[in-house]
């Protein structure tokens, strides 16, 4: 029994680790998409942030400067997306694709040129990464059955950015639902003309939403390269940005359901490594690829209305043109 509990704790623990970047990126996407700007460039912003964090941390030896660099790069990419789609009214999907592809190439190019490690940026040395934090009394709590071990294994022992990810959900919920900014944000994604009539500049609202998106993606990127991992590797986001987007759709563009979707996808990921070669009753041996494909299949089914219905913000994808 104790063994099963411990196994469950370990799976939960790795679920939390795997969910952190998804949660950050999904909350990032929530701001952008709720304001009416489609953001398939979560992937590119994360990857850009991951590279910047690794490069800055490797160069300066400071994880904090790494995080700062990630924030700056991801922010600038978000502003580029805004410039293309808000100011120039370009296609939002095309712009997102452009950013994803350009960053996927630029990371390895710069890594090669600056660090000569075949497209990688290794980060090592004291203080270059966000390391695990043991919360107070974690070791002492271990002796307490159930809750104590849960506290020690799952709640304690993550790096700072994981706690930031956890914090991002209630913060997002608060901002989106309880503040004036949030009200305007939701309105601008549903009915920009009405917001405009109320004298609030639509373009500025969307730019502000994208700023938040950029910063949150930056944290997600830094988490990958100087939190969870130790350096930048080519394509290290490996579709996490798209997965976050799927979670956002799965969560119907709302913070808490989106968090749950992220946790579900992360759990599938955590189980996948453990279920390798294990024979399950009825199904037999489950191919790991089936579990990998699961989040994407679920999202397709959801979008098709076979499991619930996902209704996007009404004005999503349309550039706003002020009527003259």
């Amino acid at each position: 029994m104790a063994d099963v509990w411990l196994q469950a704790l370990l799976v939960t623990d790795s679920t939390v680790r795997l969910a952190a970047p998804l949660v950050l990126a999904a909350m990032a996407g929530l701001f952008s998409e709720r304001s009416g700007v489609v953001d398939i460039a979560l992937e590119g912003k994360m990857l850009g942030g991951a590279f910047a964090a690794a490069a800055a941390a490797a160069y300066t030896g400071s994880a904090w400067l790494g995080l700062l660099a990630a924030l700056v790069v991801s922010y600038l990419l978000a502003m580029l997306h805004g410039f293309a789609t808000i100011t120039n009214r370009g296609d939002q999907v095309v712009s997102g694709m452009a950013i994803n592809i350009a960053v996927a190439g630029l990371g390895p190019v710069l890594a090669d040129a600056w660090f000569h490690q075949a497209g990688r940026v290794p980060v090592f040395g004291a203080g270059t990464r966000f390391t695990e934090i043991d919360l107070p009394f974690a070791e002492a709590a271990r002796a307490v059955p159930l809750m104590g071990s849960f506290y020690a294994e799952v709640v304690s022992g993550h790096n700072l950015l994981v706690y930031l990810a956890a914090l991002s959900v209630p913060l997002t919920a608060f901002v989106v639902y309880q503040t004036r900014f949030g009200l305007r944000l939701r309105a601008v994604g549903e009915n920009p003309a009405a917001v405009d009539t109320a004298g609030i500049p639509v373009a500025r609202m969307r730019y502000e939403a994208l700023m938040v998106t950029g910063l949150l993606c930056g944290v997600a990127g830094a988490y990958l390269s100087i939190g969870q991992g130790a350096g930048f590797v080519r394509d290290m986001t490996a579709g996490k940005g798209y997965l976050a987007l799927a979670a956002l759709i799965f969560g119907k563009w709302r913070p808490v359901p989106t968090l749950l979707a992220c946790l579900l996808f992360a759990l599938a990921d955590a189980l996948q490594t453990r279920l390798q070669g294990v024979t399950l009753p009825v199904i037999g041996e489950l191919p790991t690829q089936a579990i990998q494909a699961l989040p994407y299949l679920l999202t397709i089914l959801l979008l098709a209305g076979f499991v619930g219905r996902a209704v996007a913000p009404k004005a999503i994808g349309q550039p706003y043109v002020k009527e003259r």
């Binding site: 293309a84 120039n88 370009g90 095309v94 994803n100 350009a102 190439g105 630029l106 090669d112 040129a113």
Partner: peptide, 24 residues
């Protein structure tokens, strides 16, 4: 100094300028 990934960068920039920023 210029790795093969440069082509991917160009690809992204072409999509950006010929696609998203076509009206610039």
């Amino acid at each position: 100094a210029i790795s093969r990934d440069m082509v991917v960068v160009i690809q992204g920039l072409v999509i950006l300028f010929a696609g998203a920023l076509e009206h610039m």
